[in-house]
Every structure is written in C-alpha cells, then in structure tokens.
C-alpha cells in the first residue's frame, strides 16, 4: 500500500496556561483517512492539544503542520476555514438556537450553497431533519451529540476533532455513536479523538497515542496498545 498523505504533524509542542505547563512535549502524526485516538487520564493534556490545534491556545514551543502548512500561529477562524472542525467536549450545542441554525453555523466558512451538506448529515441522522426547527436544547443528550457531530461535518472537514465524545452518554448511545464514527472512518474521514473510554476507542482506532502529564509517552496501533501491559493496567481496567 502506498504511503498515505500526511494531514497533521505536531512537532515538539509545548503549551502553558500561565505557570501551568499543560503540554510539555507532544509529537504526533495523523495521516489521510486515519482514525487516531488520544488516551490518557484527566489533565494529561489531551483537550489542551485539541485547543492548540484549533488555535484557541498558543503553544510556547513547537510546530503544528496541517496539510503542509504551518498553522501554529493562525487565528482560529482561518484554521476552521482551512478544514479542521471540532465536536467539543460536553457537545457545546447552542441550546437556544434551532437545530437548523446550529448546522448553519457549522458551515460558517462554507462559501457555496449548503443544501448538499445538509442533505448529507440528514442522511446520516434522519432524526435531525425531522427536528430541524426544534430548539437544540430540547434534544436528548444522545441527540445533542449527533447534532454536535453533524455540525462539525457541515464544513466537510479535512480533519475532524472529537473531544471526549462518549462522555456523559449511556452505553447504548455510545455504541450507536461509535458505529457512526466507524462508518465515517470507512468512508475516508480523517478523525482525531480523545477518549477516556479506551477499550471502545482502541477497538476502532488505526493508531493511538498515550498521554501522561502533558507528554505523548507511547504510540502504536490499536492492537499494540490494547496488549501493552502499561496501557492495560492504566486504561483498560487492570490485567484482564
């Protein structure tokens, strides 16, 4: 198989909030069509990395290369316009606005008519079409997660970020969500997600990175990480 195109490269990245060093040293790579999972406990720097990729926090060192361009210092709107979109932690639905308006906002940087994009996400989640005029805050938690994912897909992103997508969702909804993620992955969507539900994520991921105290300490394919004793001990609930 030919080497796949590189979508994202993070080199020697460090991010600090004031005196707190949230990311000390992170190196990672995401190739075209890959599903990559970032594992690690709370405060390991996974979410901070996603925020840095979006330009919402400025790295103190290192480089972020996206589609061959150095975006380390770009403002967020340019990064989103270039093709990175996010499903925020806790879903981040604009609850007072309608489902439709949330989707329209997801396509803020899309220059052409968005009918086709709407059609695509409605095909993925027909329920959203039925409820497009409904206030987004009235949707259930699972439905809101579907809306957040659809909103992120509205811009046809080259790289889709998902921050703790299964957080706060019941096991049935999580299964449905991962079925959709796997489907998107099969269709070639490049995805980078953070997840505390390591077992679930590693089952679907091509590769993963393990974060500890702001450093990317380990990387490997899904099966490699699943069978790694350290990973098993820390994230998969002991030696089973």
């Amino acid at each position: 198989m030919a080497k796949r195109n590189n979508v994202l490269t993070v080199q020697n990245l460090a991010v600090a909030y004031g005196h707190i060093q949230a990311i000390k040293k992170v190196d990672l790579q995401v190739n075209q069509g890959e599903l990559i999972v970032l594992l690690g406990s709370n405060g390991a720097g996974k979410s901070t990395l996603l925020h840095a990729l979006l330009g919402k926090v400025r790295p103190s060192r290192g480089r972020i290369i996206f589609m061959g361009q150095d975006i380390t210092q770009w403002p967020t709107e340019n990064i989103v316009a270039a093709g990175i979109s996010i499903v925020p932690e806790g879903r981040g639905i604009l609850s007072l606005m309608s489902v439709m308006e949330n989707l329209q906002l997801g396509a803020y940087h899309v220059k052409h008519d968005i009918t086709e994009n709407l059609h695509r996400v409605f095909k993925l989640f027909p329920l959203l079409e039925e409820r497009k005029k409904q206030q987004a805050g009235t949707l259930s938690g699972g439905e809101q997660q579907m809306l957040a994912l659809s909103r992120a897909l509205m811009s046809s992103p080259k790289l889709l970020l998902m921050d703790e997508p299964s957080l706060g969702l019941g096991p049935i909804i999580v299964n449905e969500l991962y079925a959709v993620i796997a489907d998107l992955h099969n269709k070639g969507q490049t995805i980078l997600l953070t997840e505390q539900n390591a077992r679930k994520a590693l089952k679907y991921a091509d590769r993963g990175y393990v974060f500890d105290l702001g450093t990317s300490v380990l990387s490997g394919t899904g099966p490699e990480l699943s069978s790694n004793p350290g990973v098993r001990k820390a994230y998969l609930g002991g030696g089973d």
Binding site: L54, K56, A81, S85, L94, M97, G106, S155
Partner: peptide, 19 residues
C-alpha cells in the same frame, strides 16, 4: 446568526470558527 451564537456561548462560537 454569528452574533447570536457569540452572545450565547463565546467559547463555542470561537470553536466553530466565528471570527
């Protein structure tokens, strides 16, 4: 729409790329 999104949740509006 962008103005109302910023009014409702500035952080999310920024994440969506609203300048």
């Amino acid at each position: 729409r962008a103005i109302r999104a910023m009014a409702q949740d500035l952080d999310i509006a920024r994440s969506l790329g609203i300048p």
